[in-house]
Write a protein that binds this DNA or RNA. Structure first.
Length: 519
DNA sequence: TCTGGGGTCCTTAACCGT
DNA sequence: TCTGACGGTTAAGGACCC
């Protein structure tokens, strides 16, 4: 009674980069790198064309530019990726109620639970239809792994990439795994891999031979047991739809290290506000406030404080974060700051009033106890919770249209300035930023995207998902005809229209993608 | 120009109460 | 009363994943 290979793992190929290529016809077949573009940015996703140059995720963008100077470097556009992801996940949910998303571009599906397949042939069939379906809906390719467990399905999809399908027949898993590197197992990263290598273990087969006791001794209880089972191909974790979030956090890495204590305090306050904004948006409150500080030498400290009860009051989180910061030595400089909240409860707006009260009282310890106990029944009208009103407004200044902020955290001061009145920057007031990859619309030329900018100019390529590669034009940064716009759907109202296939050599357009003023 | 951002889970240590 | 074992909670750090 071995399990039929009806656990499916789906992995979209080079997802962010593929979406960009689908959205920007001139980039198809070109090296595309999506990630942070600042001096400390890293690559989130590289297209397969870029990987041929040795570029891969998690590599510093600066290094990627050295390896692949002619690639197109773009900031991530999460709103668009999320929209595409929703289309894909909807396809999966049509197959089974048991869909477990791992990220925007990956998910497990229990086909048997949905009645979509009960044996190898059925699973293969379903998976091929799914891949075709996803391609039709999004224009993107996906790789699929099928096996009797999550771990093996994932190993299979890895082997299927790109644009493939691989099914591991029950009974063959041990032989299949044995020669593979220990690093192919989920949970074995650089540290554990190196640890095992020093013990002379490099393959999954050797891992299995080592035995459970030995592995537990080497890597600890939980890890060792899991490792041994995986090495044998054993994995009975179920596919679970809907898992609750356990924490919410935000962090920013700065272009240059921060030294000024006042500035550092200010940034922590901003991060606390942002964090609470996200916390509330998710309908949660939380009990433990965490401050994260990465110093100039990359050493990372965290400090946390657990409150008496959960809160979603920005003032409370700000103050806790400020307190935690006071205990940290920042001489030498700070490269990253972060604020998080964990110990989540799904308290929502009604509890705000009670929370604020409880916290105000928190200093007076004895009474706080009584407060926490108070029934949540005292639901205050939202309008009355003064603090509530205030931070709703504060939260509202963030999501100003595009979520572009995600791409350029480091320039937060400038970027946040778009909607906020708080920009203290006196000079160059109308200076707009046009990060590479941004969607724009021009009054005369229509939709396009920013290919690069610098020295007061911005270069835009006018094309859209359904169109042939478009042509490039350069404008002044403050051109009134030019404005940011929302992304267009990848597949949709096929704008049939003018299919003017003029030559307009799109070639070498990618080269222009470099945004740096360097050129 | 070294090394993002958002998470999860595990381990260890300290501390408290039984 | 002293001591030890043990469990739960909190805090800090680390590994890992996409």
């Amino acid at each position: 009674m071995r399990a039929a290979p009806t656990i499916l793992h789906l992995d979209m190929d080079a997802f962010y980069a593929s979406v960009e290529q689908a959205a920007k016809p001139s980039l198809r077949g070109k090296a595309v790198i999506v990630g942070g573009l600042g001096p400390r940015g890293v690559v989130a996703t590289a297209s397969y064309e870029a990987r041929r140059f040795g570029v891969h995720s998690a590599m510093p963008t600066a290094q990627a530019r050295r390896l692949c100077p002619n690639g197109a470097y773009l900031i991530p556009r999460f709103t668009l990726y999320r929209a595409v992801s929703d289309l894909v996940m909807a396809r999966l949910r049509a197959l089974s109620p048991l869909v477990e998303p791992l990220s925007l571009d990956e998910a497990f599906v229990d086909l048997e639970a949905g009645g979509a397949a009960f044996d190898s042939a059925g699973a293969r069939d379903t998976a091929e239809r799914l891949r075709a379906d996803i391609r039709a809906a999004t224009g993107l390719s996906a790789s699929v792994g099928l096996a009797g467990s999550k771990m093996l399905a994932k190993v299979a999809s890895e082997g299927a990439k790109p644009d493939g399908l691989l099914l591991i027949e029950p009974g063959t898993e041990r032989e299949l795994l044995a020669p593979m590197s220990v690093r192919t197992l989920p949970g074995v990263g650089p540290a554990t891999g190196e640890h095992l290598r020093r013990a002379g273990i490099t393959t999954v087969g050797e891992l299995a031979d080592a035995g459970e006791d030995e592995l537990v001794r080497m890597t600890g209880r939980a890890h060792g047991v899991a490792l041994y089972r995986m090495a044998l191909g054993l994995d009975d974790r179920p596919v679970v739809a809907e898992r609750d979030a356990k924490s919410v956090s935000v962090e920013d890495t700065f272009d240059v290290d921060l030294h000024d204590r006042v500035r550092i305090r200010g940034e922590v306050q901003r991060l606390a506000e942002r964090c609470v904004g996200r916390l509330r948006a998710s309908g949660h409150s939380g009990r433990t406030i965490v401050l994260k500080v990465r110093r100039y030498d990359f050493s990372t400290l965290t400090r946390s404080e657990t409150l008496r009860g959960p809160t979603d009051d920005p003032a409370v989180v700000r103050e806790a974060a400020a307190r935690l910061l006071e205990g940290i030595d920042t001489t030498g400089g700070v490269r990253l700051l972060g604020v998080g909240v964990s110990g989540l409860a799904d308290y929502t707006q009604e509890d705000l009033f009670a929370q604020a009260e409880a916290q105000a009282e928190a200093e007076a310890e004895a009474r706080a106890q009584a407060q926490a106990q108070a029934p949540a029944g005292a639901r205050a009208p939202v309008g009355e919770t003064d603090s509530g009103g205030a931070d709703v407004a504060a939260g509202a200044q963030g999501p100003n249209g595009a979520d572009g902020g995600a791409g350029a955290p480091v320039r937060a001061e400038a970027a946040a300035g778009t909607g906020a009145a708080d920009a203290p920057v006196g000079e160059s007031p109308q200076e707009r930023r046009w990060p590479a990859g941004t969607d724009v619309r021009h009054g005369e030329y229509g939709p396009g995207w920013v290919q690069g900018s610098g020295v007061g100019r911005v270069t835009v390529r006018f094309e859209r998902p359904g169109s042939p590669p478009g042509r490039v034009r350069t404008f002044r940064m403050d051109d009134p005809e030019l404005e940011p716009s929302d992304p267009l759907p990848l597949v949709g109202e096929a704008d049939g229209e003018h299919a003017k296939g003029d030559g307009e050599h799109a070639e070498e357009g990618a080269g222009g993608g470099r945004s740096g003023g360097g050129g």
